[in-house]
């Protein structure tokens, strides 16, 4: 019996997971593209007063870089089928992603303490909206990370493939890339 669901015809040799995640990244890119467009459109109006970007965001960016490095580490472990490296890499990746989100919340508190409340100016509103939407997407990744990490500690063979961890890592790198672009936007405008 032909006992597989996957058939012969594939697109560019990609796996199901890769097509799913890459398409998802395209959709998320479009979402942030629209937000950025709206931001650039709105900032031309007279009432726009730019928000001083908290220096904490540099530290948060560093956290996200470390999270990305952790995921790359986990992927290299998966390639060598080294369970210990996978576990450490996943732990670093997940931990620093959570630290990033926590840091963003801290940055919001810093801004509100200085009087930059959400409704005072459209620039403030955009700042909170953009950073919150990005943080939400990072948290979505953390949910997937939790699932993969759980399976890793149970030593589930399907998860320990380089592809599964590689896809999670790709999402982490992608979130870093999106953040760098958004951070650049906030810094330069």
């Amino acid at each position: 019996m032909d006992n597989t669901v996957n058939n012969e015809e594939r697109f560019m040799g990609l796996t199901h997971g890769q097509v799913f995640v890459y398409t998802l990244m395209t959709v998320i890119s479009i979402l942030f593209l629209f937000i950025t467009n709206a931001y650039l459109f709105r900032m031309n109006f007279e009432d726009w007063r730019s928000v001083p970007v908290p220096s904490l965001l540099w530290v948060n960016t560093g956290s996200l870089v470390l999270a990305s490095v952790g995921m790359a580490w986990a992927k290299s472990g998966a390639k060598k089928t080294n369970l210990q490296t996978i576990k450490v890499g996943l732990a670093v990746g997940g931990l620093f992603a959570v630290i990033f989100v926590w840091g963003q919340i801290w940055a919001w508190q810093e801004l509100t303490t200085l009087g930059f409340f959400l409704t005072i100016n459209p620039a403030n509103t955009f700042f909170y909206l953009i950073t919150a939407l990005h943080a939400l997407h990072v948290l979505g990744g953390v949910v997937a990370w939790f699932y993969v990490t759980l399976k890793t500690f149970k030593q589930d063979a399907s998860i320990l493939k380089p592809e599964s961890i590689g896809l999670l890592g790709a999402y982490w790198h992608y979130m870093l890339l999106v953040w760098v672009m958004l951070f650049g936007l906030l810094l330069t405008t």
């Binding site: 012969e8 594939r10 697109f11 199901h16």
Partner: peptide, 9 residues
């Protein structure tokens, strides 16, 4: 993209 039967280009 991924689940076409053999021959289904």
């Amino acid at each position: 993209l991924q689940s076409r039967a053999k021959g289904m280009s």
